[in-house]
Amino acid sequence: MEISALRDLLEGEVLCGEDRLDDEIETLFASDMMSDVLACPDEIHCLLTGLINQQVIRTADMMDIGLVVFVRSKRPSEEVVEMARQRDMVIILTPCRMFTACGRLYEAGLGLR
């Protein structure tokens, strides 16, 4: 699925990385625990989370995750968005709750075991 299709499914707003919306994503991980993200042995293309601090971007960077989706319209600070921009990441804000966002994306074929 292209990132632009994910954005549409989640009624999302792109905060940075507009030039990468045609990148393909297949795997998704949803968590507010960054420790769990770091413990995932699989390749993750997209992280869904309700946390909006700097450590989300650092964790995504360490795991080479190119797309971060913030749920429930929680808007990160400009500092956090700038960190993501410097790392060439895409940030999307969705009004969906975590459960709803996961449900829509699972139904569309995304996810990890």
Partner: peptide
């Protein structure tokens, strides 16, 4: 509150 402190760090470092 920042997504850490779940007791996963050292085991993950070892892994």
């Amino acid at each position: 509150n920042s997504g850490f402190g779940a007791g996963m760090g050292l085991p993950n470092m070892k892994r």
